[in-house]
């Protein structure tokens, strides 16, 4: 079983349903201030990238919440599978020596 899924969301109902005519779903990322990274804020529907950005401005930045917007169609998001998060993240959990607190440095050494 792969630990990568082609979607961030479950798709529990789509198989039985007729093909949807609605505008594609986009994920919106906003840089709140200069110097910060873009953060996921939510999603919206739009026919194309240009409209996605315009809608994102109206939906997610009505009160100076952002200086930059990224939009990516939701179907392009690859995601980890929650049920496999144990084995997937195990390598990081078992390596305590990656944290500085693993090492005892005598006080005389000073700030380190």
């Amino acid at each position: 079983m792969s630990s990568v899924s082609p979607s961030a969301y479950p798709d529990t109902e789509s198989e039985k349903k007729p093909e949807r005519k609605e505008w594609p779903l986009w994920e919106i990322f906003i840089r709140g201030q200069h110097g910060m990274s873009h953060r996921h804020v939510g999603s919206l529907h739009a026919p194309d990238a240009e409209m996605a950005i315009k809608n994102a401005r109206d939906v997610y930045t009505r009160r100076n919440e952002g200086v930059s917007i990224w939009a990516v169609e939701s179907r392009h998001i690859a995601a980890t599978v929650p049920s496999e998060k144990g084995p997937l993240f195990e390598p990081s959990e078992s390596k305590v020596y990656r944290h500085p607190t693993f090492f005892d440095i005598p006080d005389e050494v000073g700030q380190m």
């Binding site: 961030a8 479950p10 798709d11 789509s14 349903k17 005519k21 529907h45």
Partner: peptide, 20 residues
């Protein structure tokens, strides 16, 4: 209108479509 959109988005993460 924005509140409606935030909430529809949240509902859609549960596998229903906006149009439905």
């Amino acid at each position: 209108a924005g509140h409606g959109l935030y909430l529809y988005c949240a509902a859609e993460t549960l596998g229903v479509s906006r149009d439905d």
